[in-house]
């Protein structure tokens, strides 16, 4: 009966809500995906947050602060969506801090130059939008609704990132060179954000059937390349891929094969940056422990006083 109702909702492309019966596998797959997304939002605050104190103009400083603030807000909605499936934020943060759950490995690349902030907005947020817009139709209601708001904000971020790249590419020769270096650094990692090729993506079939996922990795990757190459041309910048060429017959760009070995290394969390990212998170959490305890103690006293 329960299973039949669930199957009927999925079949009719309707939303599953927190109180609806759902199979354990569906619930677990969603918690895993939403948690990884939430973790990615809050870890993603770090590489950009490092540049707030160094932003080269007050306008850019304000835009970047607002962006990083949005990411904290996205983390909050997403942890809320996961809580509606019965897993509290504190538990998910513990899993992040103990590395038993992952975040997007894109945030394990360094941001040595200001132009990286532009490239992240343009490419990384651009790729994230491609991945996330279909999730607005996710079968699980709270996640789909959170994604609507997140995608709206992400598209601002993408435009702001592109504006940074535009200013640099129209700027001094040093600024132009900085923009090209950032594109060189972020092109392939962004291409790999869509995950492994379909031939090597074990969860895709089930996630598509359940309406958690709407397009395959390779479909989204192609959309991203098709959208991004003309944008790079407009900037006068060249993506670092010799195989990149317009294929009139397919109506798409052909492009080279990413370095999947590097992708695997990044997903495994090799290198120094993952420890830095988790270290910052854990330190914030541990050093904030007395503050959270104080807030809880105060709330308890206040409730006791108002009950008396």
């Amino acid at each position: 009966m329960n299973q039949a109702h669930f199957d009927a909702l999925i079949e009719a492309d309707e939303r599953i809500e927190p109180d609806d019966w759902m199979p354990d596998d569906y619930r677990n797959a969603l918690v895993r995906q939403i948690a990884q997304h939430a973790h990615s939002e809050i870890i993603g605050m770090q590489p950009e947050g490092e540049w707030i104190t160094r932003a080269p103009s007050l306008r850019r400083k304000a835009i970047l602060t607002a962006k990083v603030q949005d990411e904290a807000g996205h983390g909050l909605y997403l942890y809320g969506a996961a809580e509606s499936l019965g897993t509290p934020r504190s538990e998910l943060l513990d899993r992040l801090h103990t590395k038993t759950q992952k975040y997007s490995s894109i945030f394990n690349y360094p941001t040595p130059e200001w132009a990286d902030i532009g490239a992240i907005g343009w490419l990384v947020d651009g790729a994230a939008i491609m991945n996330q817009v279909p999730l607005c139709r996710c079968s699980y209601g709270p996640y789909g609704r959170a994604m609507v708001r997140i995608c709206k904000e992400e598209s601002f971020h993408q435009r702001q990132g592109y504006q940074i790249m535009l200013s640099l590419s129209q700027g001094t020769p040093e600024q132009q060179a900085m923009a090209q270096r950032a594109l060189d650094r972020w092109w392939w990692p962004s291409i790999m954000m869509f995950g492994p090729p379909d031939s090597d993506s074990p969860n895709t079939g089930r996630s598509m059937a359940w309406g958690i996922k709407r397009f395959t990795n390779d479909e989204l990757r192609q959309n991203f390349v098709d959208a991004t190459v003309p944008q790079a041309e407009l900037l006068g910048l060249t993506p670092p891929d010799n195989a990149l060429v317009w294929n009139a017959e397919r109506g798409h760009y052909d492009f080279g094969e990413p370095d999947w070995d590097e992708f695997a290394r990044m997903v495994r969390g090799e290198g120094e940056i993952p420890d830095v990212r988790i270290g910052v998170r854990r330190a914030a959490h541990d050093e904030g422990d007395w503050v959270r305890k104080a807030a809880a103690a105060y709330a308890g006293k206040r409730d006791a006083r108002s009950a008396a």
């Binding site: 809050i42 605050m45 770090q46 947050g49 707030i52 104190t53 400083k61 304000a62 602060t65 607002a66 990083v68 603030q69 904290a72 807000g73 983390g75 909050l76 942890y79 910052v280 330190a283 914030a284 050093e287 904030g288 422990d289 503050v291 959270r292």
Partner: peptide
Amino acid sequence: LAQWITHAPTLEEDVALANISL
């Protein structure tokens, strides 16, 4: 205040301190 961002005791405080900073 911007120096607190990503280091705050809760995510809510990351948002609040960023907001005041802005």
